[in-house]
């Protein structure tokens, strides 16, 4: 009996040892991946605080002391091209205007479309939903040549309208909202509201939207990030070249576009100014975002 116990114990020890070994190896591998994920950002922050001459001397893991000087060059130096190419505060403002309006329109009208399809019975219900599923697959690049030509014809280029209004039609978000409604929006609530004398639109705004808050929050964050990071559409539409109208990604592209880099420290400072706000926002909202991506994964 005791012999059997010891054999069993040995097997268990062996098993536990294997698990522990595997876990340790994996943790080391995850730490390596973490370093790979963070290293470029870390070098960016370090180099933003160093002068161009320091950077030429070699790679360093400790910050330098030229950050203030770099920021001053970026904002005020007339001789270097950074002042004219990169105006971070105009960039933040313009990007915020476009992004906030677009994110609001996306979630509001997607919720509305999903609500219309989910709650009401009408002839074209199934056809319109199938249509929305089909157009989810069309890449934006395919429509862009026609889009730009059409916008120039309508004299809407160089305005923010073509960047904001199309946000109303976001098929993927409609799909997500419909799936969410199917699982957590009972139709009885609509009937109860009707009996209480609420009109249809009011039912949607005061009852359906508050009930859909989790889905709306997640989709608002994703719409915000996607629009904020979008370089393609603004660069096609804002053709005028007026720096005060451009979005942040366009400005960072302008820093890149010149043949020669004039001051590496300032270059890194510009990039840092374009990246750091979104990283701070991410750290604050990371739980939400990760949960949101996971929700997107259970589509089937």
């Amino acid at each position: 009996m005791s012999k059997m116990n010891s054999v069993y114990g040995q097997g268990k020890d062996n098993y536990m040892f294997k698990i522990r070994l595997k876990s340790t190896i994996l943790v080391i591998w995850f730490i390596i991946l973490t370093i790979i994920c963070l290293l470029p950002i870390y070098i960016l922050v370090i180099n933003a605080t160093r002068s161009s001459d320091d950077i030429a001397l070699g790679f360093s893991l400790t910050p330098g002391n030229s950050f203030i000087k770099n920021v001053k060059t970026m904002l005020f130096d007339d001789e270097k091209p950074y002042k004219s190419a990169f105006k971070p505060f105009y960039g933040y403002r313009n990007s915020l205007i476009i992004t906030c309006s677009a994110a609001f329109l996306t979630v509001f009208f997607s919720a509305m479309t999903a609500y219309g399809i989910h709650v009401y019975d009408f002839k074209l219900k199934e056809i319109s939903y199938t249509f929305i599923l089909l157009i989810m697959m069309v890449p934006t690049q395919v429509t862009s040549a026609g889009f730009v030509q059409f916008m120039i014809k309508m004299k809407l280029h160089d305005t923010y309208w073509p960047l904001i209004i199309p946000a109303i039609a976001a098929p993927a978000v409609v799909f997500f909202m419909r799936s969410y409604m199917k699982s957590s929006f009972p139709l009885e609530i609509v009937e109860a509201a009707r009996i209480d004398g609420s009109n249809e639109f009011r039912t949607f705004v005061t009852i359906a939207i508050p009930m859909m808050k989790p889905a709306i929050a997640v989709q608002a964050i994703f719409a915000f990030v996607a629009t904020w990071n979008n370089y393609y559409t603004p660069s096609m539409i804002l053709l005028g070249g007026d720096k005060h109208k451009q979005t942040l990604p366009m400005m960072i592209q302008a820093v890149n576009a010149s043949d020669k880099v004039y001051d590496y420290g300032v270059n890194y400072t510009c990039i840092a100014f374009s990246i750091i706000p979104i990283i701070i926002a991410y750290i604050a909202l990371s739980r939400f975002i990760i949960a949101g991506v996971a929700l997107g994964g259970v589509k089937e």
Binding site: F109, T113, G116, I117, D121, A145, P166, E200
Partner: peptide, 29 residues
């Protein structure tokens, strides 16, 4: 309530038509 259904999905399809479907047809053209 069918008419409300159409009203709720109208903005989506209107915007989709002007800013995506028409540009797509335009690209083909």
């Amino acid at each position: 309530y069918a008419k409300y259904g159409y009203m709720f999905i109208l903005p989506f399809f209107l915007v989709y038509f002007f800013f995506q479907l028409w540009p797509l047809i335009n690209t083909f053209k």
